[in-house]
Amino acid sequence: MDTPDFKVRTRAKLADRTMHAVLWLVALTFVGVLLVFVGAILKQGWPELNLHFLTSMPKTLDAGGGIAPELLNSLYLVAISLILALPIGVGAGIYMAEYAGQGRALRFFRLCVETLAATPSIVLALFGMILFVQMMGWSFSIRSGAFTLALLNVPVITRVTEESLRAVPRELIEASYGLGATKLQTILKVALPYAATGILTGVVLTAGRAFGESAILVFTAGTNTSDKFPDFRLSVPGETLSVHLWYVTSDGTLPDASQIAAGTAAVMILVLLVLNLLVRLLDRAIRRRTR
C-alpha cells in the first residue's frame, strides 16, 4: 500500500484562519449590537431626562407629561411581587435541594419549575386576567399585577435557591449533622447563610426581569395610573414604565409620544445597568469566598 502524502493542506489552514476571523467577527458583532443598542436608546432619551420628566404626572392628550407614577409603580410592583414570590420560591427550592431526594419526584418537580419558567409571559397574563382580574374581581390593579408578576418570579427564585443550596460544600452540612443538629437547624444555620449570596444574586436578576416585564402587566395592572401621587393603594391601576413605553407608542394620542417613549426607555436602560452592576458585585463576593 502506498502511503498518501499527509501534508497539511493549505485549504485546511486557510479554513482555519478564515473561521478564526469569522469567530471574532461574530463575537465583535454582538458587542457592537449591544453598544449601538444602548447608545441609541440613551442618545434618544438623554434630552428628555430632567427632573420635570421624572417627577411630574403623565398627560393623556397634551405634550409635556412626566413619568413619576410609572416609575413608582414599577418599583412598587417589583417589590410586592418579590415579597409574594420569595417565600414560595425559596421554600420550593429548599424542598427540592434538601428533601426531595434524587428520584422521580425531584425530576418531576424540576420539569414543572422549568416549564413554569419557560411559560410565555403572555400566557401568564391570560391566566392572571382570568383569575385575578375577572374571577377575584380585582380588575386592573396593582394587586392583580403583583400576583401575576409573582408567577414569573417564582420559578427563577426556586431554581437559584436549589442551585445555590446544592453548591454548599457537603463537608459543612455533614459537620453540622455530626454535631447533632436537626435538618431544619442545618438548613437555617449552615446551608442558607452559605447560599444567601447566590440566592440574592438570583433575586436581583429576577427583579430586573420583573422590572422590564410588560405583557403581563398590560393585562393585569392596566394602562392607567391613579390620579393621586403617590398612591400606594393596591386596588388602583398601576401602569409601569415598560407598559407606559408600549402604550404611548402604540396608542398614539400623545403629540410628544416619541420623546416620552425615548425618555422612558433611557430610564429603564439606566435602571438595568445599575442592577447589572449590583449582580456583578454580588458575583464577585461569591467568587472571593470560594477562592
Binding site: F30, V31, V33, L34, F37, V38, A40, I41, L205, G208, R209, F211, G212, E213, S214, A215, S242, V243, L245, W246, T249, A261, A262, A265, M268, I269, L272, L273, L275, N276, V279
Partner: peptide, 16 residues
C-alpha cells in the same frame, strides 16, 4: 455583553 442583552426588556427592544 450576553448578560446585558438578556436583561434588556422586550419593550425597549421594540422601541429600538
Amino acid at each position: 455583553v450576553m448578560d446585558l442583552l438578556v436583561g434588556i426588556p422586550s419593550v425597549v427592544y421594540g422601541i429600538f
